[in-house]
Design a protein around this nucleic acid. Sequence first.
RNA 1: GGCGCUAUCGUCCAGGGGUCUAGGACAGGGCCCUCUCAAGGCUCAGACACGGGUUCAAAUCCCGUUAGCGCUACCA
Length: 479
Amino acid sequence: MTRVRFAPSPTGFLHIGGARTFLFNWLYARKLGGTVVLRIDDTDTLRSTDASLQSILQGMEWLELDWDEQYYQSKRLQLHIDAAHALLKKGAAYRDFVPASTDDPKDHSETKVSWTCNPGERERSVEESDRLAAEGKPFVIRFRVPREDPKGVAFKDMVFGKQFRKYVDMEDFALLRSDGNPTYHLATCVDDGDLKITDILRGQDHLTNTFKHVLIFEALGYETPTFGHMPLLLGPDGSKLSKRKHGPIVSVTNYRDAGFLPQAFINFISLLGWSSKDNQEVFSLEELRAKFNAADILRTNSIVQFDENDAVNWAPPKAVWLNGQHLRSMPVEKLIKYVNPELIKAGWWQDEFEGDPDILKKIDAIRSRFNMLGEFQQRGAAYFCDEFPTEDKAVENLDKDNARELLRGLADPLEALADFSHDTVEATLRAYAEEKGVKAGLLINGSRAALTGQSVGPSAFEVFDLIGQEKAVQRLRAV
RNA sequence: GGCGCUAUCGUCCAGGGGUCUAGGACAGGGCCCUCUCAAGGCUCAGACACGGGUUCAAAUCCCGUUAGCGCUACCA
């Protein structure tokens, strides 16, 4: 039984890289009928906040990807501590009484020699170690890497293939800090082992950590999961995408607020570091689930092309295009779930709209020109209410020749129409144009301007049909 | 410094010894369609990091260089 996990730390909002990790794990598990576990890695009590947790949950909810089990790492603390002591008892770990180094860990000066352990600490006898501990001397528990063994750790990565690291190149990493709290490595492995996680898809930044993790799994007697490491997401400047450096633009909720459809956002991030190999780019979630294959995950980092300096058009162009694709192809019945909130926000919503086929028809007609949900608010006024602005370009169309007078005159034959439809309106308008000796285009573009206040939009005859006879006639007479 | 990982158009991805005068998508230019704007169709421009090998043949395999990234914490 496949079990995957997504383990975010609630130290900020859900960011795009986290969303992709979640998505890939979800696709992987759901394709195999497996279980998705959400584990909140909230052991960093200093940085973890409830606001962050809520924000992450909100982001995940928006994505509409579900999970089956949920845990909080902070509630599993004793398990981690017990594991550290079990390893100590087995001799797989030892106490190190040397105080934490105050050196800057970022200092990689040329003089720095590679560090593997504090001399003398791992050789101390159990009796001596126990005695010092009993005296109350602070210590850290470290994993005893079998450095005398010339071999090393090997595992097969789903993405990167065979991986190997010699024991001599590995340091005796910490398991339990001197304050009694487990390190990330320990906590994550104990939880993954205890929760019987079978497959782990995570960021490539953990590729070299995995050697340590394999050691922990084996020493603890857990089944070692299968790993797959994904390439990192980089900012336009080529540096690793981070909240600190790239700001709120990497937040998933930002995409939601910008008017993205979750399906399109998912489609977009699925294309970052993965491809179906057949050049298909537009995918529904179902198609993704069917086509996703961890072996097809790329090994190269990819740049997310957003523009942090542009408050309006910051979103990656391809994401915007994909959103348009989804906006257009999604069944309208499904789309209204995302459009209705826009109508509500704009203040146009009326209860009669609910289930009204005319509303569906309007949405269907105007959506083909939109890329973002927000455009329904920005450019949909004339279709959903009687108060709408008239754009400058539309005014120009109305001011052409004696367009206004002609349009007012056009209202009469249209009002007289018994069957008011796209075709009858077209016939009427063209006949009227001929009668008046003007080009039909003048009245066509003028009509759109009069009915919608816009110079651009759906076919004018479609607009008549959408607006309806009564209102169309009113609007023509009002020019 | 040590140990790894990676390197194809501006960006995201195909191609993984001959079918490559390197394919698709986004963005950009042009044309068509057309009542406008989109959409759609067609089209132009645009890349194998560099240097050595191996081979009849290298974008593809090997080595090196360079660059980027990761790990090298009692961060995660």
